[in-house]
Design a binder for these strands. Sequence first.
RNA 1: AGAGAGGUGGCCGAGUGGUUUAAGGCGCACGCCUGGAAAGCGUGUUUCCGCGAGAGCGGAUCGAGGGUUCGAAUCCCUUCCUCUCUGCCA
Length: 433
Amino acid sequence: MASHKLVVMLPIQTLRDHAADVATALKKRGIDAEAMVEEILELDEKRRSLQAEVDATLAEANRISKEIGVLYKSGKGAEANALKEESGKLKEKSKALGEDLTTAAEALQQALYQLPNAPHPSVPDGQDDSDNEVVKEVGERPDMGKDAQPHWELASQYDLIDFELGVKITGAGFPVYKGKGARLQRALISYFLDYNTAAGYQEVQVPHLVNEASGMGTGQLPDKEGQMYEITADNLYLIPTAEVPVTNMLRDEILERSSFPIKYTGYTPCFRREAGSYGAHVRGLNRLHQFDKVEIVRVEHPANSYAALDQMVAHVEGLLTALGLPYRILRLCGGDLGFTAALTYDFEIWSAGQGRWLEVSSVSNFEAFQANRLKLRYRDEDNKTQLAHTLNGSALALPRVLAGLLENFQEEDGIRIPEVLQPYTGFAKISQE
RNA sequence: AGAGAGGUGGCCGAGUGGUUUAAGGCGCACGCCUGGAAAGCGUGUUUCCGCGAGAGCGGAUCGAGGGUUCGAAUCCCUUCCUCUCUGCCA
């Protein structure tokens, strides 16, 4: 009752030490951060002074209790009873103070929950995705003229994916992959995992259902509850990304410095309700309720997390280059940046059949934001516990890569398979049987 | 799903109302000893919060939450989880 563990977004210590910097950084998100930060610091101050009062009261009560024990043992019952009265008063006082403390701590917690991660200095200003900064564009966009088909036409023509069948079995957004379509998808998963493990990421297979604590840990709960499928009978959630189970492997852990860097890769299906998103841009594989993804996750010493982010960006570039897909990298602007991220790079591939870019990967540094919720720490040089930094990225999300392959490599007589995939597919071309 | 057992520090494991300030062991760290090591001896070793420049002091913490009591790891209630047996099953 006397000490309140804060489950917060940004670590409170960061706010105490760098209030002005945090407020300035948060302006990029278009929120009035100065007032919020100021309110938080006031609430923090209030909580701390109440904490000190409660502690002092309890210390006195503890002292008296011990004295009573001693008095009873030496048969001085009368004196003991007198002290009991005093102790009763202290108990009342500490109870009242404790309630105030709980109120103050909860108010602080609520305020902290509203506060998103502070954007990295390199995050550009901006309102929405139209303000994202194009960092680079690589590869030639194939010019196919009017003959270019969107992937859903190709998928139907070559009998690779059956969207209607998925509707029958489950509903919209749950496609059935068939024949070479299924094989191509499996080939991509295997290729991605091999590529990732070759770069030192340890392959893991994790549960596809997670409990509430895990959802809280990586930040999907409580804010984005409506985006996850929930198994109410067992109070579990279907994962929206492997990030949740993989990062939560290290929840409540205190790492030794020698354990860095920690690098995991895992393939999982991902389930997203995508409530409220319908329209032309969700056609075919563009947006699904269930899709496959291979994820990379890193846990780093804070001093190394941005170097790690750069490595992850280069890693994903390597995958797209090997596949021969034209891509571009975006640095997300303040308005488009996710709640938990400090810096995010999105990867988009060119979709020749639709004439637009499709996001296939998102690589982020969350700094200490997730670690703070996860209680994921390490011991520093002075043996003190510090929050680690967490990062993750898609390497890669399957459906849009599949769409890109079909659309960009469509030819007169079929669809050409990139060389790196051929050992996995067992065929070099998808053509009319 | 039914029946039973159990959740204690980094790990193992004592502990059914007051020197438990959580015994003891293992591990780890440092020191003594040694030519060096092992053994031995000594000291330290949960985490979180508050105060403090620091040493340190105080509070909380025995799965979680409530209750009884001057005082709870220990008693009561609720809840979560794990294990064993039975049942079911890839």
